[in-house]
């Protein structure tokens, strides 16, 4: 079985934080720790890796099967770290156009 956390969770490497969380919950419901402890441990370990921004980036960068380019990854990470809120005057100027 693959050790890539994206594979373990059955997700593509473009999955968002919210998608990762939802998929984790779905899998935990399918494999509760009480009935399937080993499978749960693997799911949880994968989830923890993806929640940690450093290991998650590593996996996407060094995974040979990934179709992402360094540029696309960097662009996405940059977008994440940029402030998401837009100032009101920008909104206003947009409205003016």
């Amino acid at each position: 079985m693959s050790t890539n956390p994206y594979d373990i969770l059955g997700l593509g490497s473009e999955a968002t934080e919210a998608e990762i969380r939802q998929q984790y919950l779905t899998l935990v419901r399918q494999h509760p720790p009480d009935r399937d402890p080993e499978r749960f441990a693997a799911i949880r370990a994968a989830y923890d890796q993806l929640r940690d921004p450093v290991t998650s980036l590593e996996h996407r960068l060094f995974d040979v099967t990934s179709h992402e380019t360094l540029e696309s990854l960097l662009a996405r990470e940059r977008a994440k770290s940029l402030p998401r809120r837009i100032a009101t005057d920008v909104l206003l100027s947009l409205a003016d156009e």
Binding site: V28, R29, P32, P33, D34, R35, F40, R44
Partner: peptide, 17 residues
């Protein structure tokens, strides 16, 4: 509830402790 879950009944919740 946890006992029922272990016994295989569907109790609607899953516990991660």
């Amino acid at each position: 509830v946890q006992g029922a879950l272990i016994a295989g009944q569907d109790v609607g919740s899953v516990l991660v402790d």
